[in-house]
Design a protein around this nucleic acid. Structure first.
Lengths: 167, 167
DNA sequence: TATATTGCTTCGTTAGGCTAAGTATAGCTT
DNA sequence: AAGCTATACTTAGCCTAACGAAGCAATATA
């Protein structure tokens, strides 16, 4: 591979695609292993990350989908016994989606598509390399979120807690 | 943000998620602008990148989906007049999916979800920073494709040609 | 009390994905 | 030449995910 700036743009795009692709394909596999589809798994992950209970509204915001979609997804995880709906006492219009023991079990089977494979590899890297990769990723994320496009509304460190990780 | 290795793992995962999310949301918008869905747009992009004509088999391999899925997607881009099917002369079992002028027009409206926003920003970066980001991305891509998971079968530089890029 | 507004669900539709089964062509084997 | 077997696609039928519109119930506000 040559080193002209032009080629670097192409090469970085290709690498980005490989990352996207690997993640997408792996997500299918993992979700299948846990008896859940990727979208349903995401629901459980978010509920767990929010302390085991959250509202459909919050799920919709965080996932970037409509409430109607969340209703359908919650129906399915509820049907599989991995969560239950409970009416809120504070505001009786609200429903809390509460993860069950079965749900937590499923999450442990398939903790996270990205985490499972990425964390293992990342933590083997040399210190300087980890630092460099982190800086690059943050740069890219900033480049992509910026430009007036309102992505990633609620994605904070809360979503991925150290305690969730294996190892 | 502190600098402990642990935090770096979390932070890099968060950045990776932001990238994935921004890409996914932006893909919808762009595809909508071109009058195509993201998957249909991908079909056209691959056909164009392969010189304006390719087979369903090649599309399926490159996209990582079944041939039946490709048939359905090709049906849709054909229905929109953005491609046509032509029987191959060499092997009459094969069909060539050939992009039309309308298809090329649509591609120019929405060249690429990743490209559109990424290339602009990337090419503004300092030389050393481009090099660092590229190295990091390639490292991550290698980390993710590896581990015995057979992702990204045919994703080579052929997919994204310099000529496709704006600027 | 009457009228929003909010939170969620239901309904109907579209898209993308799969597997299984079918059709047509190509390539062997005998 | 006849008869497998493999390849390339399509068809049919199913599932999941997503949406918007419309509905219902509870809260907030006038």
């Amino acid at each position: 591979m040559t080193d002209q700036p032009h080629d670097r743009t192409d090469a970085s795009l290709i690498a980005l695609r490989r990352i996207l692709r690997a993640t997408e394909l792996y997500a299918r596999d993992l979700a299948q292993a846990a008896g859940l589809t990727p979208a349903q798994l995401r629901v459980l992950q978010i509920v767990a990350a929010r302390g085991g209970s959250t509202t459909p509204k919050a799920l919709a915001t965080q996932m970037g989908v409509s409430q109607a979609t969340v209703t359908a997804l919650v129906d399915k995880v509820v049907a599989r016994g991995m969560a239950v709906r409970e009416r809120s006492d504070q505001d009786r219009r609200q429903t809390n989606v509460v993860i069950t023991e079965a749900g937590r079990g499923a999450l442990q089977e398939a903790p996270d598509a990205l985490q499972q494979r990425y964390v293992r590899a990342f933590e083997k890297l040399a210190d300087w390399e980890q630092a460099q990769i982190l800086a690059s990723l943050e740069r890219i994320a900033a480049m992509l979120d910026a430009e007036g496009f309102d992505a990633s509304p609620v994605l904070t460190t809360g979503e991925i807690k150290a305690g969730d990780r294996p190892g």
